[in-house]
Simulated scan of single mutants.
Amino acid sequence: MTNVLHVNATVSCPHGGRASYLPASPRVNLSGQPAATVAGAWLIAGCPFAVGPKPQPCVTIRWVTPAARVTVAGAPVVTQASTGLCLSAEQVPQGPPLVTVVQQRTKGV
C-alpha cells in the first residue's frame, strides 16, 4: 500500500518542471483536496529541456500503472508508487515524473 496523490501533491518532471493536476471528478477528497486519478489532466510548466537547439519541454504526464484496486468514479487513482511518463507536446517520452510530497492519511493499491 502506498499514499494516494491529491491535487496539492508535489510532482515534477525529471528536468525540474512543476506538474499541476486538474481533477476530472472532485467528488472524493483527501485531506480536503480532490483525489488524483488517471482521468484528470496533469500539466507541466517550467520544463527547460531541449534537444540540441530545439526546445522539447515536458508538458503532460501519462500514468501507465496507476492503482489496481482503488478507483474514483471508475478511474484508477494515482499513488506515490504509480509509474508514469512525462511527455513533450509531440508526445515524446521524456522520463518518469518525480513525486516528492503527498498526503499521508490515505493509502491504496
Rank of each mutant, 00 (worst) to 15 (best):
residue 3 N to T: 14
residue 86 C to K: 04
residue 63 W to Y: 09
residue 23 P to Q: 06
residue 104 Q to A: 15
residue 39 A to G: 12
residue 51 V to R: 13
residue 102 V to W: 13
residue 4 V to S: 05
residue 58 C to G: 15
residue 3 N to M: 14
residue 84 G to D: 04
residue 97 P to Y: 10
residue 16 G to Q: 06
residue 48 P to V: 05
residue 48 P to G: 11
residue 85 L to T: 07
residue 13 C to E: 01
residue 45 A to V: 15
residue 67 A to E: 01
residue 109 V to S: 14
residue 109 V to F: 14
residue 67 A to N: 05
residue 14 P to S: 03
residue 9 A to S: 15
residue 67 A to Y: 01
residue 11 V to S: 07
residue 85 L to Q: 14
residue 36 A to D: 05
residue 106 T to P: 00
residue 50 A to F: 03
residue 66 P to A: 12
residue 92 V to E: 12
residue 52 G to M: 07
residue 3 N to F: 15
residue 97 P to Q: 12
residue 26 P to I: 06
residue 61 I to R: 02
residue 8 N to W: 08
residue 66 P to W: 11
residue 14 P to G: 05
residue 91 Q to T: 14
residue 58 C to D: 07
residue 33 Q to Y: 07
residue 25 S to Q: 08
residue 27 R to I: 13
residue 16 G to C: 05
residue 40 G to I: 04
residue 5 L to K: 04
residue 50 A to P: 07
residue 54 K to C: 00
residue 61 I to S: 03
residue 55 P to N: 10
residue 84 G to L: 08
residue 7 V to F: 10
residue 64 V to H: 05
residue 20 S to F: 09
residue 34 P to C: 07
residue 55 P to W: 11
residue 8 N to Q: 12
residue 31 S to I: 00
residue 61 I to N: 05
residue 37 T to R: 04
residue 73 A to K: 02
residue 83 T to Q: 15
residue 18 R to H: 07
residue 34 P to V: 09
residue 104 Q to I: 08
residue 67 A to P: 01
residue 106 T to Y: 10
residue 26 P to W: 06
residue 57 P to V: 02
residue 64 V to A: 06
residue 62 R to Y: 03
residue 89 A to Y: 10
residue 66 P to F: 11
residue 79 T to C: 14
residue 26 P to F: 06
residue 18 R to S: 08
residue 60 T to Y: 01
residue 84 G to C: 06
residue 77 V to Y: 01
residue 38 V to L: 04
residue 43 L to I: 09
residue 20 S to L: 09
residue 45 A to R: 15
residue 57 P to W: 03
residue 3 N to Q: 15
residue 59 V to P: 03
residue 10 T to F: 01
residue 69 R to A: 12
residue 69 R to C: 06
residue 94 Q to C: 14
residue 16 G to K: 02
residue 35 A to C: 07
residue 102 V to S: 14
residue 108 G to Y: 02
residue 20 S to V: 06
residue 107 K to P: 00
residue 43 L to V: 10
residue 58 C to Y: 01
residue 102 V to D: 06
residue 49 F to W: 10
residue 93 P to V: 12
residue 40 G to V: 04
residue 73 A to I: 00
